[in-house]
């Protein structure tokens, strides 16, 4: 600790406790907090406070009209009651996980393959790049509506299937196919964004290493698995983490496809849609908060596991 005022006696020493930094630094610190003040306020009001409030709400019962009553662990007991209230929660989680676990790896694999294609010094690359990225830019209600039509009972896909003699389902109206329709939609919409991030990662890899490797007689596959993939692992990791969080918070697509109901037979109910319905339709704030906290816990746990595991396979060259 530095003294501000050397030899100023007792008062000076007392002061130095509260002014441990040189004046200039102190001023800079004040400016720092001034500049990040909007974030701090936003973080407290719109992240930390709701997070704590929903934790508190998960131990209460409330429907906006009366006063909240504390019910202890009742909501969590309801979650575990798989024949009662917990049934739909389990369904929502298993749907969401199934969709995420299939869609995200597909997005990663296809995205990487496309990025490798685009990285081949192709003429008109900018044009292809934009074509691949367009579905990601417009992903939302309008494209979900488009897919509802393409995968409708008389839609494009089924007409194509008809030609080869297969009668396709009304994808979004039948319990067996609705999730596959959503997965299809997510792959179409999400791959482009990942492609471009992979491409940016690929372009960071120095050509020298790959050429040196080629001179040493390494084949195409050897080069990909021994050089490209390890060097690309941070990008892969980034896409994986963001993709998983996005997948687990799936909402818009299921809402549009099912008209907000999560049907047919709850087969397209996602966790986020369930939380929305518990809030808006059922006004079941306590139980909804318990579901929300379960989702938070799972997302955070998954991210921690991901970061832990990443030490084994993600290679940072700096």
């Amino acid at each position: 600790m530095q003294r501000v005022d050397e030899g100023a006696g007792r008062l000076g020493r007392f002061r130095s406790l509260f002014a441990p930094l040189p004046v200039l630094q102190r001023v800079e610190e004040r400016w720092f907090w001034f500049f990040i003040a909007p974030f701090v306020v936003g973080f407290l009001l719109f992240a930390l406070a709701p997070l704590i409030a929903s934790f508190a709400l998960s131990f209460m019962e409330w429907n906006l009209r009366g006063t909240p009553t504390i019910v202890g662990l009742d909501n969590y007991a309801d979650l575990a009651d798989l024949d009662g209230k917990g049934k739909i929660v389990l369904k929502a989680f298993s749907n969401t996980v199934m969709i995420t676990v299939i869609a995200v790896p597909m997005q990663l694999i296809i995205g990487l393959a496309f990025a490798m294609l685009l990285n081949q010094k192709v003429k008109g690359m900018a044009l292809f790049r934009m074509a691949f990225y367009l579905p990601t830019v417009v992903a939302g209600v309008a494209t979900a509506a488009l897919w509802r039509w393409i995968l409708g009972s008389e839609g494009l896909v089924n007409r194509a299937l008809e030609i080869v003699g297969v009668a396709g389902p009304a994808w979004f109206n039948e319990p067996e196919s609705v999730r596959w329709g959503i997965i299809f939609m997510l792959i179409w919409a999400g791959t482009g964004g990942m492609t471009l991030i992979f491409l940016a990662g690929l372009q960071q890899i120095s050509k020298d290493i790959l050429e040196a490797c080629e001179c040493d007689g390494a084949g195409r596959f050897r080069r990909f698995f021994s050089i490209t993939l390890p060097l690309l692992s941070p990008t892969l990791f980034f896409n994986l983490v963001i993709g998983l969080i996005g997948g687990l918070s799936l909402f818009t697509e299921t809402y549009v496809v099912s008209g907000g109901g999560g049907g047919p037979a709850n087969e397209s109910m996602s966790v986020a849609l369930l939380i929305y319905r518990l809030l808006i339709r059922n006004l079941d704030f306590g139980f909804g908060s318990a579901v929300a906290w379960l989702l938070t816990a799972i997302v955070l746990l998954l991210t921690i596991v991901n970061f832990r595991l990443s030490k084994r396979w993600v290679f940072y060259d700096n």
Binding site: A49, P50, L51, S54, L248, S249, A272, I275, L295, T296
Partner: peptide, 14 residues
């Protein structure tokens, strides 16, 4: 804040 899905905050916010 990137890691916390917005969906888990909506009940108290709303």
């Amino acid at each position: 804040t990137i890691l916390v899905p917005y969906q888990v905050l909506i009940i108290p916010e709303y």
